[in-house]
Amino acid sequence: MNSSYVYILKCSDGSYYTGVSSDLEKRMFQHHSGYYQDCYTYKRRPLELVFTWEFTHVSIAIDAEKQIKKWSRAKKEALIRGEYDLLPELAKKKFRD
């Protein structure tokens, strides 16, 4: 069974890119080299790999990637820092009075 990875890159402009790959080393080379010129990260290099999460099933990895992409910056940064206890609170919608 092959592993799949969800990963987060910090871009040179401070933004985050979340992706999924079954060959993380190859995908990182592609990001760093600018292999895909139409990729979000192409003009935001250099890049820093700040988070990885390994999965045994690609379908679960894809679901996790889709979920993380919807998260706020604060929630992504808590995940990156390993502050998992903060994730439920950061998921709550803030309403104005």
Rank of each mutant, 00 (worst) to 15 (best):
residue 68 I to C: 09
residue 77 E to A: 02
residue 76 K to C: 15
residue 88 P to H: 00
residue 63 D to C: 11
residue 78 A to I: 07
residue 78 A to G: 04
residue 71 W to S: 01
residue 85 D to W: 12
residue 75 K to F: 09
residue 91 A to F: 06
residue 70 K to V: 10
residue 81 R to C: 07
residue 90 L to G: 06
residue 87 L to D: 02
residue 75 K to H: 08
residue 85 D to F: 14
residue 84 Y to A: 07
residue 88 P to R: 00
residue 66 K to I: 08
residue 89 E to L: 14
residue 73 R to D: 09
residue 73 R to W: 07
residue 74 A to G: 09
residue 76 K to G: 12
residue 80 I to K: 09
residue 80 I to H: 10
residue 71 W to F: 07
residue 68 I to R: 02
residue 74 A to S: 11
residue 70 K to C: 13
residue 75 K to E: 12
residue 80 I to Y: 13
residue 63 D to V: 14
residue 79 L to A: 04
residue 62 I to L: 15
residue 90 L to H: 04
residue 83 E to F: 04
residue 85 D to C: 04
residue 65 E to V: 10
residue 66 K to S: 10
residue 78 A to Y: 05
residue 82 G to F: 08
residue 72 S to R: 02
residue 77 E to N: 00
residue 70 K to P: 13
residue 74 A to L: 07
residue 85 D to V: 05
residue 73 R to G: 09
residue 90 L to M: 12
residue 67 Q to N: 02
residue 68 I to T: 08
residue 65 E to H: 06
residue 84 Y to I: 11
residue 74 A to Y: 00
residue 91 A to I: 10
residue 90 L to C: 11
residue 85 D to N: 04
residue 70 K to A: 12
residue 74 A to F: 00
residue 73 R to M: 12
residue 82 G to H: 06
residue 76 K to A: 12
residue 69 K to F: 02
residue 65 E to R: 08
residue 83 E to P: 08
residue 69 K to E: 00
residue 79 L to V: 05
residue 67 Q to F: 05
residue 82 G to R: 03
residue 90 L to N: 07
residue 68 I to G: 07
residue 63 D to L: 13
residue 66 K to A: 12
residue 68 I to P: 07
residue 89 E to R: 08
residue 67 Q to V: 06
residue 68 I to Y: 10
residue 64 A to K: 13
residue 84 Y to H: 10
residue 90 L to T: 06
residue 74 A to D: 11
residue 73 R to I: 14
residue 64 A to H: 14
residue 78 A to C: 06
residue 80 I to N: 10
residue 71 W to I: 03
residue 79 L to I: 08
residue 64 A to S: 14
residue 86 L to W: 05
residue 88 P to Q: 00
residue 70 K to N: 11
residue 86 L to K: 07
residue 81 R to K: 15
residue 64 A to Q: 14
residue 72 S to T: 14
residue 72 S to W: 05
residue 86 L to A: 09
residue 65 E to A: 05
residue 79 L to G: 02
residue 67 Q to L: 04
residue 72 S to D: 04
residue 81 R to A: 14
residue 69 K to Q: 03
residue 86 L to G: 00
residue 63 D to S: 14
residue 86 L to D: 03
residue 85 D to Y: 12
residue 82 G to A: 05
residue 64 A to G: 11
residue 68 I to M: 10
